[in-house]
Amino acid sequence: MIGYVTIGVRDIDAAKEFYTSLTGHKVLFDGGRIAFIGETMGGPMIAVCVPYDANDPHPGNGTMIALKGGGQDGCDAMYKKALELGATCDGEPGSRIPGQFYGAYAKDPDGNKLCFYDFS
């Protein structure tokens, strides 16, 4: 359903390093001020982009990117890795809907909100 999501960043090289290290995926296309990260060009991707108007990026209030954690341990590992890569906590790992949804929340170095989740 979703091809890619684009988030604004200040430092394109730092953003590429953050998201490739966090997800284990690679930069599939690098256009200078925008780069697409994923497994394949036909699969879901995250695009990191220096805004076209060259102003500072502003994360949307209520906007969030949810990344599959691959189970609770996977969510915990992605959350921990994000913090090691410079993200900040926006909600420690835990059950949000008991027995149904497990999530951990962080903000990347540019303030974009991420969720690492697992539906039980």
Rank of each mutant, 00 (worst) to 15 (best):
G69N: 14
P93N: 08
V48L: 04
A54C: 07
G38R: 04
L114G: 02
H58R: 12
A104P: 01
G42D: 12
G60E: 15
Y102I: 10
C89E: 12
P109A: 13
Y117K: 04
S21P: 05
R10T: 13
A14D: 15
M41I: 06
M1N: 08
G32F: 07
G38Q: 07
C75T: 00
P57K: 05
C75Q: 02
I12V: 09
E84K: 10
A82T: 09
T63E: 11
H25K: 11
K16P: 13
N55F: 00
K80V: 04
M64T: 09
S120A: 11
N55G: 09
L67S: 02
D90E: 13
L83K: 10
C115T: 09
I12K: 03
D118A: 09
A54Y: 08
I12C: 11
I37V: 06
H58P: 02
E92M: 06
A54M: 15
G91M: 08
E84G: 01
T23L: 15
A82D: 01
M78P: 00
G3N: 13
C115W: 04
A14C: 12
P109V: 12
G62A: 06
Q72S: 08
F36E: 04
L67H: 06
G99W: 03
K16G: 14
G69C: 00
T63K: 02
R33T: 15
F18D: 08
C115Q: 11
G91R: 09
A35T: 06
